[in-house]
Design a protein around this nucleic acid. Structure first.
Lengths: 221, 221
DNA sequence: GTCTATACAAGGATAGAC
DNA sequence: GTCTATCCTTGTATAGAC
């Protein structure tokens, strides 16, 4: 890994754990084991470090979502891949930045925060949401053609609901101790699927569906 | 309004718009038209200002939720009040702090952010979520007794889903330009209600329900 | 209660040697 | 590419007069 990459990963780590303003160039330099001014050889400013950190997050996320959705075939599997991808991203991010301690990180809150502060970022972030919205809408459209997704569906609305449920749950799990993400993420997905699957299927099919996936801790609703 | 309250409201305003670290005591002093050191007569430190700002948000929100839910009778109305309360809170907050410009504020992201930084805050915030969870669960339980809420319902799971949908949507609307909160909040609520209402009701009842409320911009799903 | 003056620390950034 | 030395600004906070 080049020095430039190590600086970027260290920045990302501190930005996620401590926040942008609470991160100092000294902290980053110490973590990479170089001196402060060396950072300026690789990056123009502290702001530049933030921008590249967020670009890195969004690029990686987009790449992983595209990759994992493409590998699946049925809309149900594709949506599940989409879910898994975003839910797993925090964990993967922890590994990428070498977050040895058990500090809870939350990339969603970080992105929301800086979107309103820097116009350059807000455009890139909006672009990210446009991209994943497009992917989701396409899954729904293809599913409708195969009669695997409800026909009377406001797809734009469905897309927004899906994204806000995922992100809302991740964010909530970091502030509300009762919510243990890994225990309920499957349920969230199953519940959402009930809104998308055609209703004309008889109860029996639904029941079969209820037994799909890992053991859940409570009744579906 | 006392000087102390004016300092608190100015702090809250800047914390919401600029962020805690980007807010300086000079900005607050200027807004209240006093000098910097005078702040220390009323508050112990800058951190104290943050704590009181967040307590103010949570206290006010809890109060308004409790009040508006109590005023309603049926579970459907109560849940609607709950929704309205949180969706309206941002706007009300803007008025309270005298946010003259059209700066978009988002109290949810602010709360999520500082919950992970200050233990004192994380406990108060967790307490807030426990309280609104209790309120929601009670609505569901009472509704079940009256056969107005689905009987086979994992209430704990439902509560978490409701909260994360509301907060997820509010947060998403501040970063994804396509999402216009006021256009879709009614739909979000109606969609959610479909998960809670008993299924044994025939289609007819559902259709009547679809015509309830303000004109919507798209088909329900 | 509010002010002036000031201490004290720390951050981002640059100059210029090696 | 990386370093030492240093500049400059700004922030929180306190002392003490009025």
């Amino acid at each position: 890994m080049t020095t430039k990459d190590r600086i970027l990963m260290a920045s990302l780590k501190f930005f996620l754990i401590e926040g942008y303003e609470n991160t100092t160039l000294s902290m980053i330099a110490d973590a990479v084991d170089i001196k402060k001014p060396s950072i300026y050889y690789h990056f123009k400013s502290k702001e530049g470090l933030l921008f590249h950190s967020i670009y890195f997050i969004l690029n990686t996320l987009e790449e992983q979502i595209t990759h994992s959705v493409t590998r699946s075939n049925t809309p149900k599997e594709q949506l599940e891949s989409f879910f898994e991808c975003i839910f797993d991203f925090n964990d993967k991010l922890s590994l990428m930045i070498g977050n040895d301690c058990n500090n809870s990180i939350n990339f969603i809150t970080m992105i929301q925060l800086h979107s309103n502060r820097f116009k350059e970022l807000s455009e890139r972030i909006n672009q990210y949401y446009e991209k994943i919205s497009y992917i989701l809408k396409d899954i729904l459209t293809q599913g409708q053609k195969k009669n695997l997704i409800k026909d009377a569906l406001d797809k734009d609305m469905a897309v927004i609901d899906i994204i806000s449920r995922i992100e809302g749950l991740i964010a909530l799990s970091t502030v509300y101790k009762t919510v243990h993400l890994n225990n309920i993420r499957n349920q969230l997905y199953e519940n959402l699927w009930l809104n998308l699957a055609p209703q004309n299927n008889p109860q029996k099919k639904d029941r079969k569906f209820f037994n799909y996936g890992p053991i859940s801790l409570g009744r579906k609703w």
